[in-house]
Amino acid sequence: MKEFILIFRHEDGSKIASPEQIQVWMKQTMDWLGGIAAQNKLVSHGNGLSFEDSKVVRHNNIVTNGPFGEIRETIGGYVIVRAESVEEAVEFAKGSPVLQGEGNSVEVRKIATHEF
């Protein structure tokens, strides 16, 4: 089993959706995570990342406010899963409610392990 981090890129939900809509997404997220956890394959439910109080520190210590690029979608959170292969991790990612938003994405990355 390897560990994969699933990184969500999406718009700031609070800017585009009602509190009720966010509630629905939360529930869908919990159902999705519960489904992975029921397979004993959830390593960490991670953290949501706030869109407020965010800065980018660049070369020569130049500090800019978000947004973080030309696009509106940025990293909003992550979870860590256990999977046999990147394909299995991708299958998990496909179930994420984040992907309901056009332009949103889930990046799947294997966590590098160092062998001593």
């Binding site: 159902d31 995570l33 959830l42």
Partner: peptide
């Protein structure tokens, strides 16, 4: 109950 199990499993 489903939501509670979702949390418990996590």
């Amino acid at each position: 109950i489903l939501q509670l199990y979702n949390q418990l499993l996590q």
